[in-house]
Design a protein around this nucleic acid. Sequence first.
DNA 1: ACCGGAAGGA
DNA 2: TCCTTCCGGT
Length: 480
Amino acid sequence: MDCNCVSDLLLTPPVPTLWTPGIAFPDWAYKPESSPGSRQIQLWHFILELLQKEEYQGVIAWQGDYGEFVIKDPDEVARLWGIRKCKPHMNYDKLSRALRYYYNKRILHKTKGKRFTYKFNFSKVVLVNYPLLDMANSPFLLAQNHFNGGAATPDCSPVTPEALQSLFPRLPESGRGPSLFERSAGAPGPDGDKLRLDTFPFLGSGAPCYSKPPSLLGPYPRNPSFDYPWGFNPYLPGAFSLNNCPKLPPGSLYSSHFYPNPLHSSLSQLPHPFSSLLPPGDTTGAERGQTGGTNGQPPRLCIPPYPGSVPLGRTELGNGGTGVGDRERGETNTGVTGGGLGLGLGLGLGLGGLSVGSGGGGRQSPSERRKGVKQDPESDSELEITDLSDCSSENENEPDFSLGKEPGLGGRSHLLEAKSRALGGVLPPLSSLPPPVSPHPLKSLVPLTPPPSSLPPSLSPSPSMVDRHRETEKLKLAHS
DNA sequence: ACCGGAAGGA
DNA sequence: TCCTTCCGGT
């Protein structure tokens, strides 16, 4: 048979490197060794792997918004998946069924109107693992939620690379690792498995790092009120550059080198406590402005080692449900790429002009020949926001939720304080801010790291931020 | 093409 | 639990 079951076709090399907590995955997404017989690769892992393999660019590739990818050759992807799973009769119909299965889990959602195009959804993953970045409570962000008519629920607010980078200035990175998953040395077992944040170019930095450099990566090319309804407006100071998006070198499956993360360096640049969050070596590297050791490469960012990896039993991925609005609609081509209402990251750095098979020597896949992959047939801005329904309370009752057991919000407050401090530079005048919002549904997600004793353990996040911001504003006024 | 229900397997 | 397989429907 042709079922080699090549386990290493795209397998992750279990090479532990500098541990970067990255993203804590829901347990349903990645079962640990402690669950015997359940370590089979999951489809979305496989998809991610393919997406990072340059040689599969003709088969599947990032395209469009962050997290959005297009299956250029459905049959080939299905075939590869079939090989991987020893299912010789796999086809795209079955594969797509499996992908649809992810809708409810909010791992994926369909990009409407774009054939064979799906989108990963990672916002909550980021929120959970980086409460620092939990901007859902940020009045700053909510202040701009009028874009979507206030329909956004706090914990569904996306954390975008842009947002991160607008919060923190960019710095070179120092650490990296080759593996998609890294096992936390300090958190072995079920919770030790983390997906590298830098696995996801759309989370890594402002630069999407598509294998093929997007041709229309202008940072702020479009109408913010239309493209950034989730509250984040990249038209902010301290923005990110969208340069430096080298191709993923062949053979380098999970090179974080190419999927930099802004947090790492950002933290290293921040005053205490953020700078202390970085391991000594990293901080040094970041301070030196290391490019990651590769000559000629642009500066890289990497993941901030988050103290006390967040061992979530389950992390609800932002959103993206299926539902009515997800059905394919007709063609409503706006001429501009779908602006990123994709819930997942909800950002609007449309890569719209990025053509799939064109330029960069992209070859045309069979499916393109067959049907032709529509390019930006519509703006996703309008209906791609889907299913906010369960963004609110389910985490509260999450059985696997270990975080909530952590005492107090000290750790969170700790981070929030620093975050707030960091936000000071980019926050709009306080007068423009809406009142603090109610506690985040993910409020129980606190870092495991015990809070510093110097900080009040029960600081309320939102008021804290507002206060901080108010202080910052005062200082700024005083300075001026 | 895409959807989701249903049943079943590992 | 995560698909795989099948299928009727849109």
